[in-house]
Each structure stands twice: as structure tokens, then as C-alpha cells.
Design a protein around this nucleic acid. Structure first.
Lengths: 134, 134
DNA sequence: CCTATCCTAAGACAAATGTCTCATAACGTC
DNA sequence: GACGTTATGAGACATTTGTCTTAGGATAGG
């Protein structure tokens, strides 16, 4: 029985996001933030989630005075990376292009972002045609 | 206690994909397909997954002769849509542009796809500046 | 009719997820 | 030094996910 690799469930992700936003937080601080963001959790729930994140090695805790202070170990970027890759693999036959196309069609960008995207595209093609002249 | 809305776990998604690919399948057919795709499941596992998909209303079954024939009710498109929206909301502040940018940087497209993307972009901007002249 | 097959039904069972309750330790204040 | 506040620890408990076992019905050949 292969043990399942650790995942980040939605609830834990919400907590993790708080840590990303503030850099670090105690259980109570995280709770406050989550409360004002609409999450109706009890103190214990947040504590449990932080605990689980820690056992997965995604955050560290450091006891300062009264309470534990939690900090993220994994970055927003890393999580994004994993999720996106997973999505592309599972639903877009590993073809990131399909996802990009889909995104553009179903979630239109504003002009500013369109410009940025174009810029990145240009650069990409440029590199390719210049065959890494460096 | 608000009952959680039904989700589609990974294992069920794999089965659903088989239905999308072949249009329909019996348990055994799905099993075969999954086997050749590397999944080492028992017959019962596949049966359970199809059963769960059915109770979630995502597939229907229709008894023909010997076995049940399962067909997808939800489309690939719908699932993609949900997943993408969720991803954008959860990890990209609801900004699809951020995800597009990220995708282009981390998963480069080939020239062909780059062209397509550019076309879609052009059309998007075009519509905007022309103010739906139609 | 008997047996080998294939099918479904029913449910088992461990791990993960979503949430919480309660006991208990430490702190600050009168 | 007893009291209320806040923190942690331990674990409860229902649901979902991942996967399988086993019993029993229908079917196909001999």
C-alpha cells in the first residue's frame, strides 16, 4: 500500500495563505485574519490545521513567549507550480497551451494584462528564433 | 453542519476521463482501459468509483444485457471550467492574467501554440477597441 | 443440470479531511 | 494566591477518499 503523498487540502491552503500574506502568525492571529475574511472557524480548528501543515513539513513553528509562531516553509510559487502542473497533466493532456487558450477564452484579460502576455510571448518566440545566441 | 458540496477526487477523475474518451463504458471496459494506462486497480475499485460518480450525479448507468453501461453526464469542459476557476480564485487572487503569465513562464509553448494564443489575444483586443461594431 | 464466468450488491477498513470539545498549564492582576 | 484569560495538547467524531473482499445472481458451455 503506497502511502499517499501529502497534499494540501483546501482548508489548510486557506491557512497557509494567511502565513504568506503576513509572513508569520500565531494561531490567534491567523484566526483573526481568517475571521475577517469570512471563515467561521473555531480557534481549535485553525490550530489543528497549522498542526497538520507542520507535520507535512510545510510550515515551521517557533515558540516565542506565550504562543507558537508559525512561518511558511513552502512558498506560494511552489504551491502554484504544483497545482498548475497537476491541472495541466490531469485535464489538459500535459499541454499547457490548451490551458492558456481555455483561460483566454473563458476568462478574458484586460488590456494591460493582454499587453504583458504579448510581451512574454514575443520574448519566448524571440529566444527560439535566435537560437540562443546569448 | 453544511454538507460539503460534491467534489471529484483524483481517482474518480481518472475513471471519468475514460468515459470521456470512449463515450461510455462498462466497468470491465473501464478497467481494461485504466489498466493499459498504468492504473493497477481491481475490478471492484473501478465499480466503486463509477458508483460514487453516479451518486454524485456525474454519470448515468443504463443496464444493457449483462452489464451496466456508464455514460458521463458532466463534460470535460465543465470540469475544466470549475477547476480553472477554482485555481484562479484560490491561488491567483481571481486574476486569470496572473495564471496565464505564470503558465507561459514555467511551461513554454511551442511556436504553433504561441501563434494560436496570439491570435486569440488579437481578437480579444480587437473586440474591445472596436467596441463590438459586429 | 453443473460448473466456470462475469456481473452487481453490500460493506469493510484505513487514511485523510473538516471541525470541534475538553482538560490542563502559564500569565497577569488585584 | 485565587481568578479569569489565553495557549497548548489530546483526542473525538463524521464524512470522504482509496481500495478491496466476499456473497450471490445470471449466463454460457458442455
Amino acid at each position: 500500500m503506497a502511502k499517499r503523498p501529502p497534499t494540501i487540502p483546501d482548508s489548510e491552503l486557506d491557512v497557509l495563505k494567511v502565513l504568506w500574506d503576513r509572513g508569520q502568525a500565531t494561531v490567534r492571529e491567523a484566526l483573526e485574519t481568517l475571521r475577517s475574511a469570512g471563515r467561521q472557524w473555531s480557534y481549535a480548528t485553525v490550530a489543528t490545521l497549522l498542526d497538520r501543515l507542520e507535520s507535512k513539513g510545510l510550515v515551521t513553528s517557533d515558540r516565542r513567549e506565550l504562543a507558537f509562531i508559525y512561518k511558511p516553509v513552502i512558498s506560494n510559487q511552489e504551491v502554484r507550480q504544483k497545482r498548475v502542473t497537476n491541472l495541466v497533466d490531469k485535464l489538459y493532456q500535459g499541454e499547457p497551451g490548451l490551458l492558456v487558450l481555455h483561460l483566454l477564452k473563458s476568462h478574458p484579460l484586460d488590456a494591460e494584462q493582454a499587453r504583458e502576455v504579448r510581451a512574454v510571448l514575443d520574448q519566448m518566440v524571440g529566444e527560439k528564433s535566435r537560437k540562443k545566441e546569448k
